[in-house]
C-alpha cells in the first residue's frame, strides 16, 4: 500500500499505456476522486443480490414440493 504522496503526482509519466490523448479531459487524479456514485451503484447491487438470492433459494427452491433428500 503506497502512502507516498509523490507516487500519484504524475501517473502518465511512467505508464507504457500512455499513448497521448486529450489531456484536458483527464485532469482529476485518484486522490481528488472519491467514486461515491460507484459506491451507491454497487451497494444497491449488493442488496439486490442478497435479497434475490434468498428469495430464489428459500421460496422458489426450498419451498417446492418434492426434492432430492438423500
Amino acid at each position: 500500500m503506497s502512502t507516498d504522496p509523490s507516487a500519484s503526482s504524475d501517473p502518465a509519466a511512467s505508464s507504457s499505456e500512455a499513448a497521448g490523448g486529450d489531456e484536458a479531459a483527464h485532469t482529476r487524479s485518484i486522490d481528488d476522486f472519491d467514486p461515491y456514485g460507484t459506491l451507491a451503484v454497487t451497494g444497491l447491487y449488493f442488496v439486490l443480490l442478497l435479497v434475490l438470492y434468498a428469495l430464489m433459494y428459500f421460496v422458489e427452491f426450498a419451498g417446492r414440493g418434492a426434492s432430492i433428500i438423500e
Binding site: 507516487a7 485518484i30 459506491l39
Partner: peptide, 10 residues
Amino acid sequence: MHIHRFEKLW
C-alpha cells in the same frame, strides 16, 4: 499498491 478505501469496502 494503491487501493481506494471505497474499493477496499467493496
